[in-house]
Design a protein around this nucleic acid. Structure first.
Lengths: 206, 206
DNA sequence: AGAAGGAGTGAAATGTGTTTCACTTCTTAT
DNA sequence: ATAAGAAGTGAAACACATTTCACTCCTTCT
């Protein structure tokens, strides 16, 4: 034995791995999936295509991680917004606003994450990473039901519908060729839509 | 000149074209996009792959038509449901019920049309063919606003959100591996969600 | 310095569908 | 019957990412 993974080597390896993920994310955010082939990512990360395959066994695995990272950031922010004090309706509105505002700020990336036509392998990721959002809404809705602020209902159904509503309503405005609309009005409209969809405040049991 | 397109030939040509579209639709409905490659479609239609290219210049063109046909059928039914008499809220509920019930009946095809991960070229069709649905809802909402049954709002935004909500809420139950849920309850829940999302009946101007 | 083994290179192989095309078969009009 | 033109055949060509691999370059330890 003459070569061993010293801390320095491990550190450099980790750093390279990060560079790859960052490079992929950057290319997607800038040019969409067309600009994010393996050779382009490798070049952006400053290494050869072959070397990239020492870090990720396949493109699908790489994008799985890219998707997870990019989504996780957003999910964390939304989860935090869901944690703020207030009624379930207030919290729901806040999460919707945060989600929409951030999407509209990082348009190109949001479009890539939400809607851009993409390889089926990667598309599957998209479906997967909607679940955490749904679960955030499920939590809020169940809290609301328990508190008597929201009528009893299938929380998973309602939450799924809200996720879909957000995505679809944002796709148009996020599309690269969209002319810009009044973002604050859009955000407010979406929040109102979602809160109203929960139904009216149920009559309190006497 | 020795060969001319007689009526008989034209008829046969049209029929063959139909057979191709029908074959593609059948394969997609049965096995999803994996089972719908060009050679498979050609065989199902009873001709060679080469001949197929006399009818459609590319796979994308073929699927464009397949998508249009399949979608159009559903859109027509929904548009008819939107035309029925009643308040805007009643009509909206009816369209949602019709849409959801039909999707759940033709699960495999609905999944293919709404959600199955698919080639980007075809994915673009999916985005396009959501617009007619949106427009049906826009019509209903505008009627409701005009009649004073629904508060003034951005009808396009609300309609987009409803389309997204329907799609997303159905994706789970439509997924091939989903265990079946109570369909009528799902349909009723979705209709309620959408109607409530319109907001409460506005107070009449005195 | 030298040996051992991992990391990096990048041109070439691979895999997978779509698409083509030289040829055959069929239809029509004289 | 025959000629002309169109439709049909299907094996082969193509396109184009992804993925591999024989080789070189580094890093580490003795």
């Amino acid at each position: 034995m003459a070569y061993r993974r010293t801390d320095a080597v491990v550190a450099r390896l980790n750093e390279t791995r990060e560079r790859i993920v960052a490079a992929a994310l950057k290319l997607v955010a800038q040019h969409g999936y067309d600009g994010a082939g393996i050779p382009a990512i490798a070049e952006e990360a400053g290494l050869s295509t072959g070397a990239l395959y020492r870090y990720f066994p396949s493109k699908a695995d790489l994008f799985d991680e890219v998707f997870r990272r990019a989504s996780q950031r957003e999910i964390d922010v939304c989860a935090a917004a869901a944690q703020t004090p207030g009624s379930a309706r207030e919290r729901l509105a806040r999460v919707v606003q945060v989600f929409a505002r951030r999407a509209l700020k990082g348009r190109r990336l949001a479009y890539a994450l939400l809607a851009e036509p993409v390889d089926p392998l990667i598309e599957a990721d998209r479906l997967r990473y909607r679940i955490p959002y749904r679960d955030i809404f499920v939590g809020i809705i169940e809290d609301g039901i328990e508190a008597g602020d929201i009528a009893a209902q299938d929380a998973v159904l309602t939450a799924s519908a809200i996720v879909g509503a957000l995505n679809e309503a944002l796709i148009g405005p996020l599309a690269p060729q969209a002319r810009k609309t009044d973002q604050e009005q859009l955000i407010a409209g979406l929040a109102l839509f979602c809160v109203q969809a929960l139904g009216p405040m149920p009559a309190r049991k006497s």
